[in-house]
Design a protein around this nucleic acid. Sequence first.
DNA 1: GCGATGAATGTTAGCCGCTAACATTCGAGC
DNA 2: GCTCGAATGTTAGCGGCTAACATTCATCGC
Lengths: 192, 192
Amino acid sequence: MLAANIHRMARRREQTHARLVDTGLRLFAAQGYDATTVAQVAAAAGVTEMTFYRHFATKQDLVLDDPYDPLIESSIDQQPPGLDPLTRVVRAFRAVWRNLPESGNDDVRTRIEIIVATPSLRAGTWATTERTQQMLVDRLEADGTDRLSAVVATSVVLAALNAALLEWGRAGRGPLGPVISAALDVLEPRHG
Amino acid sequence: MLAANIHRMARRREQTHARLVDTGLRLFAAQGYDATTVAQVAAAAGVTEMTFYRHFATKQDLVLDDPYDPLIESSIDQQPPGLDPLTRVVRAFRAVWRNLPESGNDDVRTRIEIIVATPSLRAGTWATTERTQQMLVDRLEADGTDRLSAVVATSVVLAALNAALLEWGRAGRGPLGPVISAALDVLEPRHG
DNA sequence: GCGATGAATGTTAGCCGCTAACATTCGAGC
DNA sequence: GCTCGAATGTTAGCGGCTAACATTCATCGC
């Protein structure tokens, strides 16, 4: 009965939210992101355009949604502070990936495919990662890393992950794990 | 008399273009990018909104303009193909920077400061770099580098440069060269 | 049960980025 | 001077997004 106690009002909101995400991703995938109107998505979800914007700040946000920061945060804290910043961030993400259930839902695939096909979304991805980057930079600076090195190390690793995701989306159907791993190997070659 | 023979018609176009850039950067810097309307910039430049869009595809493009690709292209070709892709791209950019006149115009500073202050522009930067990245990836693949490594190596280096530019913009007045150099050092530590 | 409260949604109006189609000015060359 | 074409102007409209106000509807105290 987990989460059965949440108020029905909140449930109602979650339901429309989920309906918007489902119909949105479906329409974007079917007829293209740019060719799909927010009004269309809203109508197909049985709701008003205004309600759409009450659930997503922008049209992009329906596609670019990722609440993985907490996982990353705890992972970076568990890395030994003696390492150089780049290696440290790389290993933090390796650990995050090891502890993640392989793939989870298929939405991820759909999302990435939409992003791959849409230039404006590819750019928009970076707005999303800025939060993550800021968090990582704070962590590194707290341990004495100078600001420039911290900023460069984090933005570089996030760029590698992003590139890996896009490549994974462009290629046919395969597991994501090895692609991520190979991308990080470019920054920290495996010695062995 | 260099370039004196270009038709006056083309000169006229260049002049309005320059006027748009000047007034645009001035207004963006003074009252903020988002708070400034394309119509305002056009009017201040003594021109119509439509003319603005005949010179720049989007509002962003007035700020995000960089024709450095040719320099980079020749530099990547001069790197020995034996190196691993990351080192190769890093060294190519080190060389580009050595051969560049220190700083040049002050527009760069203004542009970066506007970008630093405007989230949507920070994201938009990546749309611009996609062209550069594609070119670099093609070069690397031509020499036998596998696609993923090529994509990751280039996107990572471009991310480092971008981070360096933003940090330089955030900090007070100093030369850009050392910041770029230090950023690249994160990816290829100096041995000596 | 019933009314009151507040959350979720609806309605309307409008700004701004951007595009298309058509009209106009203005410089270059005969 | 006239003609051609490039640069600019005009008008109309779509789509993303916001603000201000109205409405439905589930919950809670009574």
